[in-house]
Amino acid sequence: MLEGKVKWFNSEKGFGFIEVEGQDDVFVHFSAIQGEGFKTLEEGQAVSAEIVEGNRGPQAANVTKEA
């Protein structure tokens, strides 16, 4: 698991990027966000996630919002 913060997230398109210190930004799709209801993230929000290899490079999986 790694910790980072949301760089930006487009709720209409359902994707965005997470900033991780010392690494390239990581793509995040709404389907990777854990929880019930409408899955979205806010800019600057702290999150933790796993990194997996997607079709277009590294992407976030099992994204959870930090308190």
Rank of each mutant, 00 (worst) to 15 (best):
Q34I: 14
G35T: 09
E19T: 13
F30Y: 12
G44Y: 04
A49W: 13
V52H: 08
F38V: 06
E66A: 14
A49G: 12
E53S: 12
L41W: 03
E53Q: 15
I33G: 03
M1P: 11
A61F: 10
G16E: 00
V52W: 09
S11L: 09
L41C: 06
G44E: 03
G37R: 01
E66K: 15
E53I: 15
E21D: 11
N62W: 11
Q45W: 10
A67T: 13
I18P: 00
S11V: 12
A61T: 10
G37F: 06
T40K: 07
Q34V: 14
Q23F: 15
V20T: 05
A60N: 03
A60V: 05
S31H: 07
G54Y: 06
V28Y: 02
I33E: 04
T64N: 11
G54F: 07
G22A: 05
K7A: 05
V52I: 11
N10R: 03
S48H: 14
V28G: 03
H29C: 08
G35A: 09
S48F: 14
G54V: 05
V6M: 00
V28F: 11
E43Q: 15
N10V: 05
A49H: 09
T64H: 13
G4F: 06
F27N: 01
K13T: 07
G54Q: 06
V26P: 00
A46G: 09
G14Q: 02
E21L: 12
V20I: 14
H29R: 00
A61R: 09
A49N: 02
A60F: 02
A32Q: 09
A61K: 10
V47I: 09
Q23A: 11
V52Q: 08
F9N: 01
V26T: 03
F15K: 00
N62F: 12
I51E: 02
E3H: 15
F15A: 01
F38P: 09
S11Y: 11
V47P: 01
G35P: 02
K5E: 05
S48T: 14
T64P: 03
V63T: 02
I18Q: 00
E19H: 10
Q34F: 09
K39Q: 09
G16I: 03
F15L: 04
S11F: 10
G16R: 00
N62A: 09
R56L: 09
K7M: 04
D24N: 13
K5Y: 13
G35Q: 09
D25V: 08
I18T: 00
N62G: 07
G14I: 01
V63N: 01
E19A: 14
G16M: 03
E66P: 12
K39D: 03
F38I: 07
E43H: 13
V28E: 02
G37I: 05
L41R: 00
T40H: 08
K5T: 11
N55T: 14
I33P: 01
E50Q: 14
Q23S: 11
K7P: 04
F27M: 01
A49D: 02
N55G: 10
E36H: 12
Q45L: 07
Q34A: 11
Q23I: 11
V6Y: 03
P58R: 13
I33H: 01
G57A: 04
H29N: 02
S31L: 08
G35D: 08
N55V: 14
E12Q: 14
F15R: 00
E42N: 11
L41V: 04
E19M: 13
E53G: 09
V63S: 02
I51Y: 09
V6H: 04
G4N: 01
R56M: 09
L41T: 02
A60W: 02
K39R: 12
G44Q: 03
Q59C: 09
V6R: 00
R56Q: 09
G37E: 05
G4P: 00
V20P: 01
N62P: 01
P58S: 08
T64M: 13
E66S: 14
A67M: 12
F17P: 00
R56G: 08
I33T: 03
Q59A: 08
A32C: 08
M1A: 10
G44T: 04
E19D: 06
V63K: 00
A49M: 15
L2K: 11
F27P: 00
P58N: 08
G57T: 03
F27A: 00
N55K: 15
G57W: 06
V20A: 06
E42F: 14
A32N: 08
V20C: 08
N55I: 14
G16N: 01
V52Y: 10
G57I: 03
A49I: 15
Q34K: 13
T40I: 08
I51K: 07
G14Y: 03
G35V: 08
F17Y: 07
E43L: 13
G35N: 07
G37K: 05
E50R: 10
K13V: 07
L41I: 04
K39W: 05
I18K: 00
F30G: 04
F38G: 05
G37V: 05
T40G: 06
E12R: 12
E53D: 10
V47K: 00
E21N: 11
K7G: 04
G35Y: 06
G4K: 00
K13N: 06
G54T: 14
A67C: 13
T64Q: 13
A67I: 12
V52L: 08
S11P: 12
P58K: 11
S31V: 05
N55L: 14
E21Q: 12
F30V: 07
G14V: 00
A32E: 07
Q23T: 09
Q45C: 09
W8H: 02
S11E: 09
L41N: 02
P58G: 04
E21A: 12
V52K: 09
G44K: 05
Q34M: 13
G14C: 07
N55S: 14
L2M: 11
S11H: 12
F27H: 02
M1Q: 11
A67E: 12
G44D: 04
E21H: 11
V63H: 01
